[in-house]
Design a binder for these strands. Structure first.
Length: 303
DNA sequence: CGTTTTTGACCAGCGC
DNA sequence: GCGCTGGTCAAAAACG
């Protein structure tokens, strides 16, 4: 049931409201139209990105788990004039229940606390990781999308392994896992508790396998993206979600030829062009959609 | 019949 | 230590 209600709403809401306030757990959250916690890795990110647009529009995204860039000067004065008045989303955000949560300036330690079993309890069959080997905190990446469907289609196969209710939110959060056995990538999907039209997708980990050739020429998953190297320079300690946000795009931050705000869906289909043998993380990778999408919302201003 | 979803139980971390 | 919250497991159900 539930066919793919592709409801591509092209809404662009670059930092409109700037008061980021909540902190979900330790994950920095953003306000309505802004962003929220993020995670994931570049590969998956890009890959996933490739398909998101087809289903809906990405509003913003965040990534952390790698090195930290100090953007400084972020300044919360996001009064950057919404270039697009259509940001209907934000309009409602004005009140939307007036829930801004306690904007506790708590520092968000973006750490994936996943400690494994503490001590060998009696049970604990599955997961034979008892070697004191801690779970590695893999990078995560999250982005917001305006979509009617919770689960966005990407080129990968996911198996839902859990669902939990989100506090203060009528919408539950779903946990997915890549069906590929070697793949440890997890995906978390939830709908914004303030803007039901927005879904928040969070990827965690990186795919160690190619995208299943399930979708035939549908325009999904064409990014093999092995670009972007992951420096992993220690764990970041963001203080403000803002910082985090600006950080995420650091991959394309390099300069992005001029922050073009054009997020043409067509880019999607015309991405497979450069098919050389250079599959290394180095070199000028084609950012593909990322270039179109991300920058538009992340670079509201220039340093 | 294999696979995915559903769903409650379970577990780990944090705050009190 | 207890209770809350978030995340995962796993058995059964649902799905193809």
């Amino acid at each position: 049931m539930s066919d793919e209600n592709r409801n591509p709403s092209y809404y662009y809401d670059p930092f409109q409201s700037s008061h980021f306030s909540s902190t979900y757990n330790d994950h920095p959250y953003m306000s309505f139209t802004d962003c929220l916690h993020g995670s994931g890795d570049y590969n998956s990110l890009a890959t996933n990105f490739g398909l998101s647009p087809s289903t809906s529009e990405v509003l913003s995204s965040v990534e952390y788990g790698h090195q930290k860039h100090e953007m400084g000067g972020g300044s919360e004065s996001t009064n950057h004039n919404p270039a697009t008045p259509n940001s209907s989303i934000s309009s409602s955000s004005t009140e939307a229940g007036g829930e801004e949560d306690s904007s506790k300036g708590r520092r968000s330690e973006t750490q994936l606390k996943e400690s494994e079993d503490g001590g060998e309890s009696s049970k604990k069959q599955s997961k034979s990781k008892k070697k004191g080997e801690k779970r590695e905190k893999e990078p995560r990446f999250a982005f917001m999308t305006k979509s009617e469907v919770d689960h966005l289609e990407d080129g990968y196969r996911w198996r839902k392994y859990g669902q939990k209710a989100v506090k203060n939110s009528p919408y539950p959060r779903s946990y997915y896992r890549c069906t590929t056995q070697k793949c440890t990538v997890k995906k978390r999907v939830e709908r914004s508790f303030q803007d039901p039209s927005i879904v928040i997708t969070t990827y965690e980990g990186q795919h160690n396998h190619p995208i299943p050739a399930t979708l035939r020429g549908s325009g999904a998953g064409m990014f093999t993206t092995s670009m972007f190297a992951s420096p992993t320079t220690g764990v970041p300690g963001y203080n403000n979600p803002q910082e985090m946000m600006f950080q995420m795009p650091h991959m394309m931050t390099t300069n992005q030829a001029g922050t073009n705000f054009a997020y043409n869906p067509q880019t999607l289909t015309s991405t497979h062009h450069h098919h050389h043998h250079q599959q290394y993380n180095q070199g000028p990778p084609d950012y593909g959609l990322l270039q179109d999408i991300v920058p538009s919302m992340f670079f509201k201003q220039e340093p």
